[in-house]
């Protein structure tokens, strides 16, 4: 990462697609420039991080937390579905997930 990163319009477009975010051409262009500046600034980490340093993903030494497997009341269906964009027969109604030909 010695040379500054330059993200192309197409690369940002691909990332936006992966992240499921629709962007306008204007947004893509503005973001590509801003991401270059940010990536250039954060690249310092690869110079500081020596190979022998172990990574830390969390400040606490985490272990699994278990609880007794007891039946407890859950939210009633009305409360769960109250804020749904669309629902039907006590279920969330969602757009199709398969293509016509499938």
């Amino acid at each position: 990462m010695e040379t500054p990163v330059t993200l192309t319009h197409a690369e940002v477009s691909k990332l936006a697609r992966l992240a499921r975010i629709e962007l306008t051409d204007e947004e893509l262009t503005a973001m590509a420039g801003q991401l270059d500046v940010i990536l250039d600034a954060v690249a310092v980490v690869s110079q500081v991080a020596r190979a022998d340093v172990p990574p830390t993903s969390h400040a606490l030494q985490l272990a699994n937390v278990f609880r007794a497997d007891e039946v407890r009341p859950s939210l009633p269906p009305d409360a769960v579905l109250a804020m749904a964009p669309a629902c039907e027969d006590d279920r969330f109604r969602v757009p199709r997930i398969l293509q016509e030909e499938q």
Binding site: V42, V45, S46, V48, A49, R50, V53, P54, P55, T56, S57
Partner: peptide, 9 residues
């Protein structure tokens, strides 16, 4: 990965 190492440091 590098960022996680900096977190250790």
């Amino acid at each position: 990965g590098s960022a996680q190492k900096v977190r250790t440091l």
